[in-house]
């Protein structure tokens, strides 16, 4: 299965470079990117670090670093190779930088090596936290990549063609929107079963409606604009009109919604993890497993602190970027500034 992760990383890198190259050739987008880089340099750098860690964790291959035992036959990612979890493990809890076990005080096998301590099973907490980066990016990013084209397809066709198509799409949207979000999420996962794909699919279904509504309303407005009318009068095909005149004018909406959805998805996964239907290895799962450790005496804080800090920083960065993007890309605030 390791090739899927490698392929996704390759596709993402190529797509990223291509989008960046296309955006640089357009003056408006170039200015928007420059403004974003100026206003949110720090948040962008940290988000970049997260993405790099996630990608390092997705690239994996078999063998090559002399690890023995069961792990030798499995594909291991770059993160796995750096931390070597099958070698450097302890018996149970140990505090950050400790040289002895937390309970009992027996000497550790690798004293001082565990920067964030170890958990109940003796796994390195820093390693587990870094592994969570990929899961979080998967929940937020991959779900959005599936959800956005779907939402655009429905929203734009409903808004552009109107009539019967609009009626059907509008009915489906109001049906899904009238089920409270969390309940729909729970119902979907309970029916589909637990698993990465199912959870992402369920998150996609619930998040789809909001963006679709936005794009539908915006398309309704755009359809009546003079240049679209002119294109239609000149006999340009519907497909070309949508591609040339409608979609570019929805891009800012899509980008802002992407950033807002991302944080919403990552945060709602923690609730799912608490309900026992989240993803394996996510920060939500770590928090859920660690929540009883706070009632111990003396308390074991490093598990829950590591996972929630990693989550907090990622969500904060994306929130900050989304906030700046809304200011930069929203034409209403643009007009106010000039």
């Amino acid at each position: 299965m390791s090739w899927i992760g490698n392929a996704i990383v390759a596709v993402l890198l190529v797509a990223g470079v291509y989008v960046w190259w296309r955006a640089r050739r357009n003056r408006l987008w170039r200015e928007a990117m420059a403004a974003l880089a100026r206003r949110r340099r720090f948040a962008l750098i940290i988000l970049g670090i997260y993405v790099v860690i996630g990608m390092l964790d997705a690239v994996s291959w078999v063998g090559g670093d002399g690890v023995q035992g069961v792990a030798a036959s499995e594909a291991r990612s770059v993160i796995d190779r750096i931390f070597k979890p099958s070698v450097f493990r302890e018996k149970s809890y140990s505090a950050p930088f400790a040289s002895a076990e937390f309970v009992g005080g027996a000497a550790l096998t690798f004293p001082g090596r565990h920067v964030l301590g170890t958990d109940l099973l003796g796994d390195d907490v820093l390693y587990k936290t870094l592994k969570g980066v990929k899961v979080a990016l998967l929940i937020g990013g991959l779900t959005c990549l599936v959800l956005i084209p779907l939402a655009l397809l429905f929203g734009v066709s409903a808004g552009y063609f109107g009539g019967r198509i609009d009626d059907v799409v509008f009915f489906v949207m109001s049906t899904l929107a009238s089920i409270p979000n969390l309940l729909l999420l729970i119902a979907l996962i309970m029916a589909l079963g637990k698993g990465t794909l199912q959870v992402c699919f369920a998150l996609g279904i619930t998040g789809w409606v909001g963006l679709s509504r936005l794009t539908r309303a915006e398309t309704l407005k755009l359809r009546e604009l003079e240049y679209v009318q002119a294109a239609r009068a000149l006999g340009v095909s519907h497909f070309t009109i949508v591609l040339r005149h409608i979609l570019p004018n929805l891009a800012h909406l899509v980008i802002i919604t992407f950033a807002l959805l991302f944080t919403g998805l990552v945060l709602s996964e923690t609730i799912l993890a608490y309900l026992g239907i989240g993803l394996d290895g996510s920060w939500g799962r770590m928090i859920d497993q660690a929540r009883n450790e706070l009632s111990r005496d003396p308390i074991i804080w490093w598990n829950i602190a590591a996972a929630s800090t990693a989550l907090f920083i990622l969500v904060l960065c994306v929130n900050l970027i989304a906030d700046a993007l809304r200011d930069i890309l929203d034409p209403r605030t643009l007009r106010e500034r000039t």
Binding site: I287, D288, L316, N319
Partner: peptide
């Protein structure tokens, strides 16, 4: 507010 929004409700 921005800081508060970024903390998971579970936390």
């Amino acid at each position: 507010c921005m800081l508060g929004m970024s903390v998971a409700s579970l936390i």
